[in-house]
């Protein structure tokens, strides 16, 4: 019980330090250029509305995070789609991913490791130590009981 109280106290002390310190207002960090381009490619792959694909490419060009994409190819694909050259845009979009294996969207945004994560790491290590210590104490106590 004492150990649990310590954990709660540590987290409670830590929480004011973990208040908002994130991205600027209005940005959506999950919308990276790579993920949006991939969605646009999949929309064309599946023969869905090319207007929707164009919207995705618009957003990709405006995205804060433009890592993992060939910007020149992205702009060319965007231009082709604007001129309703869907086939050409589709072909160009395949060249947007330089590594050639980035057809994997999944998670595209992880918060950077900041103060919160460092506090969590320290509290986590302490909690593990408390748990391990408690288990050792229990083992001794049980041996005595048995």
């Amino acid at each position: 019980m004492r150990a649990l109280l310590l954990v709660v106290a540590a987290l409670a002390l830590a929480s004011p330090a973990l208040a908002d310190e994130g991205m600027p207002e209005g940005e959506n960090p999950a919308q990276t250029a790579q993920a949006l381009s991939l969605q646009a490619l999949a929309i064309l792959d599946w023969g869905l509305s090319h207007e929707e694909a164009l919207e995705k490419l618009d957003a990709a060009l405006e995205a804060e995070d433009k890592g993992g994409v060939d910007l020149r190819a992205l702009r060319a694909a965007h231009e082709a789609l604007e001129q309703e050259e869907v086939e050409k845009a589709h072909e160009l979009l395949h060249g947007v991913f330089p590594s050639g294996v980035s057809h994997l969207a999944g998670v595209t945004y992880r918060p950077a490791v900041g103060v919160g994560e460092i506090v969590a790491l320290i509290v986590g290590a302490l909690v593990i130590a408390l748990g391990a210590f408690g288990l050792m104490r229990r083992r001794r106590a049980e041996r005595a009981l048995a």
Binding site: A30, T32, Q39, A105, T108, R110, V113, A120, L121
Partner: peptide
């Protein structure tokens, strides 16, 4: 807690 610190949960588009 340690895993959360080392690899926070992400989100896709």
């Amino acid at each position: 807690l340690v895993l959360s610190a080392l690899r926070p949960a992400g989100i896709g588009p």
